[in-house]
Amino acid sequence: MDAGVTKLLYDVHHQTTFAWLISIYFYFTGLSAGSFVVSTMSYGFGMKMYKPISRIAVITATMCLMIAPIALLMQVGWPIRSIWNHFAYLNFHSPMTYGAFLLVGYPVVCIFYALYMFRDNARMTKLLGSIGIPTAIATHGYTGFILAFGKARAYWNTALMPTLFLVSAIVSGLALMVLIVMIIFRFIKQERRVPADIVEGLAKILAWAIVVDLFLTFCDIAVLSISHEGAQEMAWLVLGGGFTPLFVGVENLIGKVLPMIVCFVPALRRNHLALAIACALVVIGIFFMRYVTVFGGQVLPLM
């Protein structure tokens, strides 16, 4: 609306609902789901070359999942009451209800999966891995549904949101795993040598995951920019408004395009310092993806 014609004199705005803490929560569940996918590569999908990093990956997945609910409980007004009420009063129309069960069930699966993996019980590991993959995907996918069900916000209310969240979870999990594997094999393990085939193999998968992520982001923004008025305002906000530095710059250019080039070009991929920096950028970029989606999606006033 033209500011010269009408002027707002008085209005009430209460508060922005979801901010940093929910972004952190989504980010860590994403990292956890991505790491879990990496850990099941050797047992579930038969990629035997990734066997040495399965244990590192499952520990990372479990650790990330321990941080995530802390941020969630700091966000809600009544943490103890929320733990009880989520199971006592069920509303099966709400994605958050399913989330409560997943956030309790997924760590249990994770811990038993890790237990059997450390005991070298291949059969049970494979069984729990095949249970764990859908659980991990659901635990992160439901967060996309939470946002998609917030139908007042044009940026959230899209059927693409769960898929977008899942793909970015896999991207961030893969990047974190490359980074952690490099650090552990370079500085902590006895051989002091980074396993080149594992790291570069993960980098190749990471590159293709980033391609899918960029494609989905493009679809989302492209449809948003020709949709109804609120959606167009939102598209303008991320493409040419207040959130452009974070969305275009940090999230997509530094966080996706640059690492994608590093992961695709063989000469750069073999330079492990460049690969480590690229993966660190991905991990940072996906955090800002969560932040822009959660916080940026609701800064525009509706009334």
Partner: peptide, 23 residues
């Protein structure tokens, strides 16, 4: 029964909900 998760605030198209600052 409310646990203060604020999901309803985020999804209300009319922005009429608020979080009680003390409760």
């Amino acid at each position: 029964r409310c646990v203060g998760c604020r999901y309803c605030m985020a999804s209300c198209p009319y922005e009429v909900r608020y979080l009680h600052p003390l409760k």
